[in-house]
Design a protein around this nucleic acid. Structure first.
Lengths: 190, 190
DNA sequence: CTATCTTGCCTAGCGCTGCTAGGATCCGGA
DNA sequence: TCCGGATCCTAGCAGCGCTAGGCAAGATAG
């Protein structure tokens, strides 16, 4: 029986190794560099081993994305907990979101740009996805004012997401980065 | 001499045919379906002909993107010209931007998501890119209030871009679409 | 301790991708 | 009529995601 347990433990470790390696490779050289061949070489196994853990490459990307949502949720919760009052929590969450997206470009791509087939906003969505949205909504709802707080959260989220993607694409003036956050926070606070 | 002209004219026509076909194919089946082989087959030439017009596939995507920016600029100018006052022009531009992005998903992908290597916000950027940004900035600057109008334009643009991408990814509630636009416009107007 | 069976893994290969080298063919000009 | 140059196609390369089939190692039973 213990042998079975050891086997399963080793499999789980290798599972995590694949995810971690894919993420590292993507962060270092971009997702284009993450091919099944290179990935297999890095984990020192043959290609087909990847397919005994994941149905395909997109599922590996999805696994990285889920990891990203968990980390984003944790990061948002942390800064919100330390903030002094709803307005400060909102501003802190916005800044943290931007910082997260810019600091982990490949991770952010897996979460939002690449095709992962992850279900969103549905009951069967992975827990980390819901948690990330909940963390954002928690900080946003308190300053939403009148009207549906969900609408406010979605608009705020979209604005931050747009800033991350456009900024990363080199389509916004770098020298205005700080001014953009300040303006966005001020206008959304109303 | 006239023969030369005919040749050049035919080349130019084929050039446009490639761009148009790539766009149609992308809009019909997604950019993944736009392979050099399928594209060559559609224009009824062999693959290498593509490379006598474009350095590579990304350059074809870039050409489609430039076309998209020209159309976006024209669409924005049209609704702004018809609007009654700065606030109405701003709201109309925002709505038009969203409608454009949602109505032409493949085109929008070429412009913003896919790697095109297009220079942005630099002097050597293609004219249509500058025009699109100018059209947006023209409608936005008048309602920017105090502060740098460029900052306001970039934030507004990013918010719209975020809404387009998240909405298209199925990550926002469809029933709140109208409420989102209204809230965004109201908050940005201050 | 040996024989059998299962499990896990690797080698090899399929059809596809973007891209290119080389040769054939056609056409304008002398 | 012949030549030179431009134009285009056939064929192929390396790499992609993914999979079939066989081999070898390890667990199990006698």
């Amino acid at each position: 029986m213990s042998i079975h347990q050891r086997r399963e433990r080793e499999r789980a470790e290798r599972h995590q190794l694949i995810i971690r390696t894919a993420r590292e490779l993507a962060e270092a050289e971009g997702w284009d560099a993450v091919t099944t061949r290179r990935l297999a070489e890095r984990i020192e196994y043959s290609q087909p081993v990847l397919y005994s853990h994941f149905a395909g490459k997109t599922e590996i990307v999805a696994a990285v994305a889920v990891e990203g949502f968990a980390e984003l949720a944790a990061a948002l919760r942390a800064v919100v907990a330390e903030a002094d009052g709803p307005a400060a929590a909102f501003a802190a969450a916005a800044r943290e979101y931007l910082a997260f997206g810019l600091a982990n470009p490949a991770l952010y791509d897996a979460m939002f740009t690449l095709a992962t087939g992850l279900p969103f906003g549905r009951p069967d969505a992975p827990a980390p996805l819901k948690e990330a949205f909940a963390a954002l909504a928690g900080a946003f709802a308190q300053v939403a004012g009148e009207g549906d707080p969900d609408v406010f959260t979605e608009v705020g989220w979209a604005s931050l997401h747009g800033l991350v993607t456009l900024e990363r694409g080199g389509r916004l003036r770098p020298d205005l980065a700080e001014a953009r956050v300040e303006l966005l926070v001020r206008r959304l606070l109303g």
